[in-house]
Simulated assay, not measured.
Amino acid sequence: MTDTLQIKDHIRQVPDFPKPGILFYDISTLLAHGAAWRATVDRMADIVGKMRPDKLIGIESRGFLVTAPVAYRLGCGFVMVRKKGKLPGSVIPHNYELEYGTDTVEIQSDAVKPRDRVVVLDDLLATGGTMRAAIELLRKVGAEVLGAAFVIELDFLGGRNRLDVPVSSIVHYDH
Results as ranks from 00 to 15, higher is better:
40 T>C: 15
40 T>I: 08
9 D>Q: 10
39 A>K: 05
46 D>P: 00
9 D>S: 14
34 G>N: 13
37 W>C: 01
44 M>L: 05
22 I>S: 11
16 D>N: 08
44 M>Q: 05
38 R>E: 15
12 R>H: 06
46 D>Q: 06
4 T>N: 10
34 G>M: 10
25 Y>T: 12
5 L>V: 13
40 T>A: 12
5 L>G: 03
27 I>A: 10
49 G>H: 09
28 S>A: 03
9 D>T: 06
13 Q>L: 14
6 Q>G: 02
44 M>W: 00
43 R>I: 01
10 H>E: 10
22 I>W: 12
30 L>Q: 08
14 V>N: 11
8 K>V: 06
4 T>Y: 10
20 P>A: 15
38 R>A: 14
44 M>D: 00
35 A>L: 15
32 A>N: 13
46 D>W: 01
14 V>S: 10
23 L>T: 11
11 I>P: 11
46 D>K: 05
46 D>H: 04
47 I>E: 15
10 H>G: 11
22 I>H: 14
39 A>T: 08
31 L>Q: 04
42 D>M: 01
9 D>W: 05
41 V>W: 09
34 G>R: 12
18 P>Y: 05
45 A>G: 01
45 A>K: 03
4 T>F: 13
41 V>R: 06
15 P>W: 15
33 H>I: 05
10 H>S: 14
33 H>L: 07
25 Y>Q: 14
47 I>L: 14
15 P>D: 10
37 W>R: 00
40 T>S: 10
46 D>L: 01
41 V>P: 02
6 Q>V: 08
23 L>Y: 02
8 K>G: 00
33 H>N: 11
49 G>P: 12
23 L>P: 06
36 A>E: 00
36 A>H: 00
17 F>S: 11
17 F>L: 02
47 I>Q: 14
17 F>I: 06
35 A>D: 15
35 A>W: 04
26 D>H: 02
19 K>G: 02
14 V>R: 07
40 T>N: 07
4 T>L: 07
49 G>A: 03
18 P>R: 03
42 D>P: 04
39 A>Q: 07
19 K>P: 04
38 R>K: 14
12 R>T: 10
27 I>V: 13
35 A>I: 12
29 T>C: 00
34 G>T: 13
15 P>H: 15
28 S>M: 07
26 D>I: 02
44 M>H: 00
11 I>M: 08
6 Q>R: 08
35 A>N: 13
22 I>C: 13
3 D>H: 04
23 L>M: 07
33 H>P: 01
30 L>H: 03
32 A>G: 15
3 D>V: 09
24 F>E: 03
45 A>P: 00
8 K>F: 07
26 D>R: 01
12 R>S: 11
40 T>D: 07
47 I>S: 14
43 R>Q: 10
22 I>Y: 12
14 V>H: 03
16 D>P: 08
6 Q>M: 13
18 P>C: 07
4 T>Q: 12
7 I>K: 02
17 F>W: 12
11 I>S: 09
31 L>Y: 01
45 A>F: 05
25 Y>R: 15
16 D>G: 10
26 D>G: 05
46 D>S: 02
34 G>S: 13
30 L>N: 09
20 P>W: 07
6 Q>C: 06
32 A>T: 14
24 F>S: 02
5 L>K: 15
13 Q>D: 06
19 K>D: 08
47 I>M: 11
24 F>C: 06
9 D>F: 05
43 R>M: 08
20 P>L: 11
9 D>V: 03
28 S>L: 06
